[in-house]
């Protein structure tokens, strides 16, 4: 008995390979999809090129020395001053205060999810935190301005009865914006830290238990140090997010460029300046228009430095368990 050869099948005899055509199509697809991948190169060139060209135009009108040393930020007034550190001080203050909220909340809930919560509860809690991360920032801005600020004002009025030296809280203030910003970046810290903590191998914990450590001692002395690089990276990325966030600060923190670190005051961050000035439709070619890009460049460099630092930190300090 001989096995029937597939080629004797009538339907297969008609089959003619057309490898040249297939190859040609693959070639075309490869070129087109490679071109699509190159869009990210174009985007980067676009961002950097735009910022450099318009910022250069700005510095041809305003000396860089004034940009770095002026004590006031009044680019839209007749007596123009361009002290970028006015905006940087507000940005840094709000980012710092928001991390004071997000670090304990995010890290502790990451520990809770990874070490204490049962798988079932974890399955419920993680999506809820994802919802928190998915709320649009304009909603957080609304919340800060119209819900949190009145509550804070009420609390501070009560505190002033006992501690009269506490200043009044303005309607637009950095404190409320920073607290809500902290809540906004908490899920980011929590989920990235949780990934790092969860990745610590169980045998490290078992080793600590075998030495007589309690659960908390294991977490703080073994698990956290082992996942430190991931935790620090998550915090730096969260700071970067806070620095670049626009809607919360432009709604709740106001538009009052003052140098200093008073969170009860109305302040103006870099992002809030861009949002406010653009809303007033700065016409192309004016100094106000170029100022947008000078501030944008400063913001871009700050977030870029933070992102690069975070990548570097992970690479440099990652613990490997293989």
């Amino acid at each position: 008995m001989t096995a029937e050869l597939p080629l004797q099948d009538a339907s297969l005899v008609q089959w003619k390979p057309n490898r040249d055509r297939a190859k040609l199509i693959q070639m075309i697809v490869k070129v087109i999809s490679g071109g699509f991948a190159a869009v990210s190169i174009l985007t980067t060139i676009g961002i950097i090129g735009t910022l450099i060209i318009e910022t250069a135009a700005f510095f041809s009108e305003v000396p860089i020395w004034n940009f770095l040393t002026d004590a006031k930020w009044t680019p839209l007034f007749s007596t123009q001053q361009f002290g970028i550190f006015v905006l940087i001080s507000a940005t840094v203050m709000i980012a710092f205060l928001s991390i004071l909220v997000a670090l304990p909340l995010g890290l502790l809930s990451a520990i809770c999810l990874s070490e204490y919560a049962s798988p079932k509860i974890r399955q419920i809690l993680k999506p809820i935190l994802e919802v928190l991360a998915g709320v649009p920032t304009v909603v957080y801005g609304f919340f800060a301005l119209l819900t949190v600020t009145p509550v804070l004002q009420f609390i501070i009025e009560q505190l002033q009865i006992i501690l009269p030296f506490i200043p009044d809280l303005k309607i637009f203030n950095a404190l409320s914006a920073a607290l809500v910003m902290g809540i906004m970046i908490t899920p980011m810290v929590a989920s990235l830290s949780e990934d790092a903590i969860y990745a610590v191998p169980q045998r490290l914990r078992d080793g600590a238990y075998a030495l007589g450590a309690t659960k908390r001692e294991t977490v703080t002395a073994v698990v956290l140090p082992a996942s430190l690089s991931g935790i620090v990276a998550s915090i730096i990325l969260a700071i970067s997010r806070a620095v670049g966030e626009t809607m919360i600060v432009s709604l709740a923190a106001g538009a009052n460029p003052v140098l200093g670190f008073n969170p009860f005051n109305s302040v103006m961050t870099m992002t809030a300046f861009i949002a406010n000035t653009v809303k007033g439709e700065a016409p192309h070619g004016t100094t106000a228009y170029f100022t947008l890009y000078a501030v944008g460049t400063t913001l871009f460099l700050m977030t870029l430095a933070l992102n690069i630092f975070s990548f570097w930190f992970v690479r440099r300090f990652r613990e490997k368990y293989d």
């Binding site: 985007t43 676009g46 961002i47 735009t50 910022l51 990325l237 970067s240 997010r241 620095v243 670049g244 966030e245 626009t246 992002t271 861009i274 949002a275 653009v278 947008l292 890009y293 944008g296 913001l299 871009f300 977030t303 870029l304 992102n307």
Partner: peptide
């Protein structure tokens, strides 16, 4: 992915 959205706005 880490560039703030307002910078994309300027672009």
């Amino acid at each position: 992915a880490g560039v703030p959205s307002i910078i994309y706005g300027l672009l």
